[in-house]
């Protein structure tokens, strides 16, 4: 690890100035950055520790639930308002990592978590995400855990976040601040598919800081839930995960949101496919039709095609809510 300058501003304006330095990286919980710095994947010249900022509030503000960027995954997961208004978010957080990591990891940091692709996580391999133009070792390599949705010839790395999948299902917004001012982006517009530039992962600018996440308080979001599938029973990234929210009038679906994790280069959702569920009963057939539409663009290798079967199973399981057919 190369030495770096360590700064710890106590004022948000000072942070916003500090992160304008080229080669700076923001340090929040550190669970991602410290790891990647030890691996040599990240080598910032300045580390800007933002833990002195008052950004860990979780509160209801009008018709939205507001979660500060520095709120820990643990605190968010068990917060009453989160459980009430966006249960999928709490469940996603509790399914992620371990108790220790959830205590340290922050919501803002989690949104910017880097892929777990082995080839990304070591400088010994070519990787277009880490080193643009160097190639992708995963496409011809071991890709049992890699993406089947949103892939490109440059990158098939899967997005690792659980919470981002839940936030996508509940139509959250990400608030960003820079010296130029503040802006708000729908989470659905926040992540970039790799295309030819897999090193560009989000629309966040180099000088911007995530300040909070906002979740609309809606009847639909209050029904949300998260199911994560993985090989071992805990402490593993998702093979497939699904965040669903369903509003019904009697048996008829009047609103639906289904986001999928562990399959895409970004958290995955298809609103057009969701329309197939609206106005219908939840039957084996209607869910199958939805899944077919959702996964139509999928492109799997022989070793990761199982993810599609798992995701379909997870969608069936969550939409039907455990009821027997």
């Amino acid at each position: 690890m190369e030495p770096f300058e360590f700064v710890r501003p106590t004022d948000i304006q000072d942070v916003l100035v500090a992160i304008r330095r080229p080669g700076s990286r923001i340090l929040a919980g550190g669970t991602s950055l410290v790891d990647l710095m030890k691996l040599g994947v990240e080598a910032p010249s300045t580390v800007v520790d933002i833990n002195a900022l008052p950004l860990s509030m979780i509160s209801v503000e009008g018709d939205a639930l507001s979660i500060g960027a520095l709120a820990s995954n643990s605190d968010v997961a068990v917060h009453r308002a989160v459980k009430q208004h966006a249960p999928a978010v709490g469940q996603a957080l509790l399914s992620g990592a371990s108790g220790q990591i959830r205590n340290a990891a922050t919501v803002g940091g989690n949104l910017l978590q880097r892929t777990r692709c082995t080839y990304f996580r070591s400088r010994d391999w070519p990787c277009n995400k880490r080193e643009p133009g160097s190639g992708c070792a995963a496409i011809e390599g071991v890709n049992v855990g890699h993406a089947v949705l949103g892939i490109s010839r440059s990158c098939i790395a899967v997005h690792p976040s659980d919470i981002a999948v839940a936030l996508l299902a509940v139509d959250a917004y990400v608030h960003l601040a820079s010296v130029a001012g503040e802006r708000r982006i729908a989470i659905g517009d926040f992540y970039c598919q790799p295309g030819d530039t897999p090193s560009v992962e989000t629309v966040i600018g180099p000088n911007e800081l995530i300040t909070k996440v906002e979740i609309p308080i809606t009847n639909l979001n209050a029904t949300s839930s998260y199911l994560k599938l993985r090989g071992r029973a805990s402490y593993e990234f998702a093979s497939a995960s699904v965040a669903t929210a369903i509003l019904r009038d009697g048996d008829i679906v009047i609103d639906a949101a289904v986001a999928v994790g562990g399959l895409g280069t970004v958290p995955w959702r298809n609103r057009t496919a969701e329309k197939l569920l609206i106005g219908k009963k939840l039957t084996q057939e209607s869910i199958l039709a939805f899944c077919d539409a959702l996964f139509a663009p999928a492109s799997a290798t022989p070793s990761n095609t199982y993810k599609l079967a798992l995701a379909r199973g997870a969608i069936h399981r969550t939409l039907r809510g455990g009821a027997e057919w």
Binding site: F6, G30, V34, D49, I101
Partner: peptide
Amino acid sequence: GKRSLSCLKFAAS
């Protein structure tokens, strides 16, 4: 008071 992984924290922080 909260369990945490000391390998993923810079002492400086």
